[in-house]
Amino acid sequence: MIKRLAAETLGTFWLVLGGCGSAVLAAAFPQLGIGFVGVALAFGLSVLTMAFALGHVSGAHFNPAVTVGLFAGGRFPAREVVQYIVAQVIGAIAAAAVLYCIASGKPGFDAAASGFASNGYGEHSPGGYSLTAAIVTEFVLTAFFVIIILGATDKRAVAGFAPIAIGLALTLIHLISIPVTNTSVNPARSTGVALFQGGWAIAQLWVFWVVPLIGGLAGGAVYRWLLDERRAAMAAGGRAATT
């Protein structure tokens, strides 16, 4: 368990450093062509690379919403949920601390003023989207992210390609929702940078815990229902074949 928790910490660290790091450090240089697309790719690539590297150790959750989603989908034990979430939050905070140290090397940098890649709604949404829009976006995208993860890692799926599907899914999610909330779908990611932004990001952090966790549970429950329906249909087909 210690090694699995260490893997979750390292994986979440890499996800936050890679994704939020691209937003804080690289997106400020338009000549690099980073923008929303580059940040979305950075998040997708960070989870893809760590899923390949550490997926066989811990399952590569790197996200509390994924952990509770896998629990709801019947693929993760309840007794380990809290431990995984604590490890993920530690990794996210550590990554945000490293990112803050790097970003502070530029004269005049202010994490509070810059937003520090934090998630927000209303006046703190990149596109000025409302709380309702933020809730709908985070819920739907987190639910689908968990469904994709459960499907891609199912034993009946094509072996070896799950990290690619998951990384591309996270990229797509960011392309959709960066303008709305700056994209969370991950309470640990939101927490790490919010602590260093220190103001409005902490006040709005509750949304990026409550909604993704509910979305993760919903996605897990939907996939489990689909799987149960498929099993029932297969069983019924088997019975019909023997009569």
Rank of each mutant, 00 (worst) to 15 (best):
V82K: 11
L195N: 08
F13E: 02
A201C: 09
T142R: 02
S104A: 15
A92M: 09
E80I: 00
P179Y: 04
F36T: 14
Y100D: 13
W200H: 12
A188G: 05
S118Y: 04
S177Y: 04
R230I: 10
A51C: 12
L70C: 12
F29Y: 14
G219W: 03
V140Q: 02
V211Y: 06
I214V: 15
F116W: 04
L217Y: 02
V211E: 09
V211D: 09
I2C: 00
P126W: 06
G108H: 11
N182C: 03
A26Q: 06
A65F: 06
V37N: 05
L17G: 05
I85R: 07
A23P: 06
R230F: 08
C101G: 13
A113Q: 13
G151L: 06
R79M: 07
F76E: 08
I102Y: 10
V89Q: 11
A236S: 14
F36L: 13
L54E: 08
F161Q: 12
T243K: 11
L17Q: 01
A233M: 09
L141K: 00
L99F: 11
N182G: 15
A6G: 09
R79T: 15
S130L: 04
A40S: 15
A134P: 05
A218G: 11
V16G: 03
V81H: 09
T153I: 00
A40M: 09
A117G: 11
I93D: 10
V86Q: 04
L10V: 14
I148K: 01
L17F: 13
G35N: 10
G220K: 02
S125H: 07
P107M: 06
F109A: 08
L141D: 01
V16Q: 04
G199Y: 08
R231Q: 14
V146N: 02
S114Y: 03
G11P: 00
G220H: 02
P179M: 05
E80C: 00
F144H: 03
V37L: 14
F208M: 09
G167R: 01
I135F: 05
G69K: 02
G18V: 00
I85V: 15
L70H: 07
G167V: 03
F62C: 05
L25W: 02
A53V: 00
N63W: 04
G33F: 13
T9I: 06
L54K: 07
G160I: 04
L10Q: 02
R189H: 03
V68C: 10
V89M: 15
A94Y: 00
F52Q: 08
A7H: 00
G44E: 08
V222M: 05
